[in-house]
Design a protein around this nucleic acid. Sequence first.
RNA 1: GCGGCUGUGGCGGAAUUGGCAGACGCUCUAGAUUCAGGUUCUAGUGGGGGCAACUCCAUGGAGGUUCAAGUCCUCUCAGCCGCACCA
Length: 859
Amino acid sequence: MESKTWPVLRSWNRAIFSKEEKAVQEKYNYHDIERKWQARWEESSLYRVTEDPHKKKYYCLEMFPYPSGNLHMGHVRNYSIGDVVARFKTMQGFNVLHPMGWDAFGLPAENAAIKHGIPPYKWTVDNIANMKRQLKSMGLSYDWKREATTSFPDYYKWTQWLFLQLYKRGLAYKKQGYVNWCPSCATVLANEQVVDGACERCETPVEKKALEQWYFRTTAYAQELLDSLVDLPGWPEKVKIMQENWIGRSEGAEIYFTEEKSGEKIAVYTTRPDTTFGVSYVVLAPEHPLVEKLIANTSYEKPVKAFVKKVQKMSEIVRTSAETEKEGMFIGVYVINPVNQEKVPVWVANYVLYEYGTGAVMGVPAHDERDFMFAQKYNLPIRVVIQPHPAADGPANELSASEMTEAYVGDGKMVNSGKYSGMPNREGGRTLAEDLAKEGAGQVKVNYRLRDWLISRQRFWGAPIPIVYCEKCGAVPVPDDQLPVLLPLQVEFRPTGESPLNSIPEFLHTSCPQCGGPAKRETDTMDTFVCSSWYFLRYTDPKNTAQAFAKEKADYWMNVDQYIGGVEHAILHLMYARFFTKVLADIGLVSVREPFQNLLTQGMVLKDGAKMSKSKGNVVSPEEIIEQYGADTARLFILFAAPPERDLEWSDQGVEGCFRFLNRVWRLVYHYLEDVRQQKELLVETEQLSQDDKAIRRLLHGTIKKVSEDIEQRFNFNTAISAIMELVNGLYHYREKAGQNKKLLRECMETLIVLLAPFVPHLSEELWECLHTGTGKGESVHRQPWPQYEPAALEAEEIEIVLQINGKVREHLLVPAGISREELEKRALATGKVQGALEGKQLVKVITVPDKLVNVVIK
RNA sequence: GCGGCUGUGGCGGAAUUGGCAGACGCUCUAGAUUCAGGUUCUAGUGGGGGCAACUCCAUGGAGGUUCAAGUCCUCUCAGCCGCACCA
């Protein structure tokens, strides 16, 4: 740690701080104190930061909020945690970037416009103003000069510019596809935004629609997004597992089955090429284009079409549920299995997904649960091609198709599989896939569950996609010098389900940037997750009008050393931001390939065991709490009540307790104020200390050690705070002792206040000022170096040893520190307790742990 | 169904490396201060037994390893979260 050498500031505006002896109020008046310091910090630009090549940087970031208009307790928790980290790192001597901004595009602004006739931009800026006021009342150490707002043209200009960078590299493209449509939001949704077949925002069941939409090619980065998770040891395992599942990599093979009459090839994807000899049918997804083609002008055309229609009518929830009955229909054609030239029927069935793999699968009833059920229902043949390895002892449990009641999906020996028979299935499957590839009848294939990211939204309040459609030239990107494509400010909102941009001729009609002819603008806007995929980069250079951000600045600050936010973003935002960072790295705009080095996912704030919500009526308003107890109390409670990752149960009485503690601190410092003011120096030598003095100093330095470690290594603010409470309790007791050392008192008071500074910035700043009038050390407590503990001060002369007999605590021994194992054992055995217990018994063993415990085993 | 997390006093939680279970806070009880209430200060506050010294029981449950287990192993129960016809 470099705190000791860290130079005290240069630019502090000393005039702001009074040099006069300050009259201190006896009572802790949080209201005046908080207002006073918030104003002074702002006047003196205490929290401004700039790049400084001579200092080690630290980028502390909390997920920026959607400006709903009011801060809730989840925000308070998120930002309190981040503020402790930022302040602590600053005191440790790091150059700390701690910014804040607004994820300001999105549906609620449009809903407000429809409902109340307020223009979205107005609604948004008003909400921002209110939330900013609330944030400022919390006393957070943000550099507000770096504020970024995604819905402002100076920001979304660069969102559009980044879109075009992706477009130029083929990473943004338009395609026709079956997409998720939320009828209530009247827009399409990304896969990630569909939860249990419903819209994640409004819970309306999602419909499938065939539409032409814009996509980002996230699949091009699927493998890297998966691989580089191992480069993130500072991320919670849980989040990494969720991302891993979402990417859903699987290894297998594509195998081509040829239709006997037309020669049409059906590609199926399987992870089990070892079971290819067991295929008894092939199934196509209802949406598969070959279905229509193969049944054209046959007697099967009518019934199959009716079946397909019926399946497509099912809601997404019902259709993708594992419980839904598997249904299918033979479509009248046969294909040839390339491994054995067998003729197998082609079916269409509701359980095959068109979006995954090739949209077609081979049915192997003996070795796949779904295929087994399907085969039983429709009387399709079952053929065993894998025999389980016989158990070590018991009888051979040979499978036979007629006796099977469920599929065997385990490993084993290949049988009935031509030249592969006898091989272990894993190895045989690999060989078989390679052989098929050589013959042109298949290929080894890796598949991902991850799809490309659908980014177009049929909404108004988002960044317009900067594309123009020309009758002659087709889709043409808007040239950089014509950015941003501005959203019109005056818009009429009617709940028509169509983007209002379509009904604004001035927006819609434009000229082609290429040929100058008449052209129409793209009226879809971008998913708001696009805006939040790069905001952490904008913070490094927020005022840049020539670039999204200067590379040198991004390179100085990136990556984010500590990112803090809710676990609900484990997949969406965090995956998209990772994708963007990798793309930007490949373009050469940044040097890092991962945006967030360490991630902390905080738990929810609960009341009466449930998440706070209006419908449950258990919402506690941060504004009211701050009004009633002050921001310092609110922050302290929320940090003290639980460690950050866990859910936190709100308790009004717990808040009272924290308020009481701060009053206790206030009274303690007030009590000693005169003594401390008389004594301008800190303790240097320790020889003349009394036993009481030594004890309190040991407590003090033990607290420094504990608080430092709890913040730095574990983010366990709750135990850090409890250690400070113990110190305060100790100091109260010390007050009763006679003849206190005044230098020591100053050391205790100063250290106590500095330790409290990251948690309760206003109170500690006020007390620091009270303590330092006239000492020349009166600059902000938040510019003080973090204290170091003295190992020597921790050493006690006597140590309490636990004496156990047969593993049970029987006595405590007071012994000189550092005595030898032998001496300790000797003393333990000499005690009356042990001697008594030994009477008539035998000493079996003595376990001695120096400085800790002795366990005497007696029989 | 698969994967993950969490189970400790009346409550929130602590015990970081296998070494005194319950730190700290809330609640509650008593004493001091006070006309009184509140505030504040002091002491106590897991359960059972005992006048007491003391002692037994106790970390969702059942086993096990160990001188020693909240912590390690096996099985099991409950709650929460994520994924789920992904071939």
